[in-house]
Simulated scan of single mutants.
Amino acid sequence: MEQLQLGGIYTRDDLEAIFGGRRMRGIARASRGPFVLLYADPSKGRGHGYHDSLDAEEDEVGTVAYYSGEGQRDQGTQKLSDGNSAILNHREEDRDLLLFWAVGKVAGRDKKRHQYVGKFAIDQTRPYFLRADQGGDGERDVYVFRLRPVGEIARPPIDYMPVAIETTYTETHPGPLLDPIDEATSKLIELEQNSAKAFLRKATAEAVVERREGALVDRFEAFLGKQQHVAKRWFVSPRGQRSGFQTDLFDVTAQVLYEAKGKADRNSVRMAIGQLFDYRRSIEPSPLLAILLPEAPKPDLRELIESVGISLVYEANGSFVGWPVART
């Protein structure tokens, strides 16, 4: 991949010469090299129900980009096949995701120019969510993949970057950079199923913890469902930002906001406390706060959680100790 330069500008002819693959597809497995090429064009994509963004979300790990799956409106709800499958299974296929962003056309020609943004990988805990898209042929669901940058990335010029006009995860707007929002906002969204599947063949310790956390949230959601409780999550946009954060789980029935962790160690508990207090500032009415852990923490950490007025729920013997959370 020596021919490819971070931030470099290429046509599809240039990239086909380097990678091969299917030229007309927005998602293409390379025929030369272990890569999946992703093409984003905000100036065209929105008209087809696609809303891609490099700064769609932010959490304690870092920035999350959103990339819409393939499938035309007249084909109905998208499927996890072909190009969408290439994104979802890129780790298992030992392929890297390479993102290219449309930045205008070649002078005097009807041929697009694409900037190489960088290498990405699908988020291992929450790989995607479904977003409703209302088109001319009725409503359908679009897969939106949550991608994390791998190493440095080269951001396209501001003129070609979509910016959210509403502080939710559904609306983006191509155009110049807007001023930061003046107030924090929040939106209640559906709780998509996490993926506990082992994506990495050589899993890192961090990846294992992320998968444990996702699996824990899935089990707790199932537990709440058996208690006739509705589980969703909040998308929070802090004041001064247009990106935001997705909370782990919100018990709508009991009005309890949970922050889950894959480990019951001190660093995880400290992080959870800070996240909960940060999220609560943007949510009205103010929810109860609880930390969800895969096992009982040490007595000192239990005292720490109790001292700040947060509840503790942890898994033990197939159930959840500390539930239901009571208002103190």
Rank of each mutant, 00 (worst) to 15 (best):
G318L: 02
F35V: 00
N267K: 01
S68A: 10
V36Y: 00
V321P: 12
R155S: 03
G26K: 01
I305Q: 02
R266V: 06
Q275F: 07
E210C: 01
D96I: 08
Q115V: 07
I189T: 11
V150T: 08
E183L: 15
A86V: 08
V142L: 14
Y279G: 10
R140C: 06
P287F: 05
V117E: 04
V163L: 11
E183H: 14
R23V: 15
W101E: 00
Q75L: 09
D218C: 05
G225N: 08
G104Q: 06
D94W: 12
D278P: 12
F245E: 04
I165F: 08
N194Q: 08
R266F: 12
G8F: 05
E60W: 09
G262H: 03
E93S: 10
V106M: 13
K261E: 01
L249T: 03
F120W: 09
Y50W: 04
K202E: 02
S53M: 03
D74F: 11
V61F: 12
A316R: 07
V321F: 11
E70H: 10
V64C: 13
S31K: 03
E306A: 13
K44F: 15
Q5S: 08
D137R: 00
S243Y: 08
E152Q: 03
R95A: 15
A222G: 14
P157I: 10
Y128E: 10
K232E: 00
Q227W: 11
G20D: 14
E58L: 10
A56G: 13
A56T: 03
I18D: 01
G138E: 10
L15A: 09
I189K: 02
T77K: 00
R233V: 04
S268G: 11
R211G: 05
L88K: 05
R211A: 08
G26E: 01
G49I: 05
G83A: 07
V103F: 02
D179L: 14
E171Q: 14
G21S: 15
E152C: 04
T167I: 06
L312H: 09
P174Q: 04
V117F: 08
G108D: 07
R32Y: 09
I27V: 07
G136M: 09
K187T: 14
H114L: 07
R23C: 07
A203Q: 00
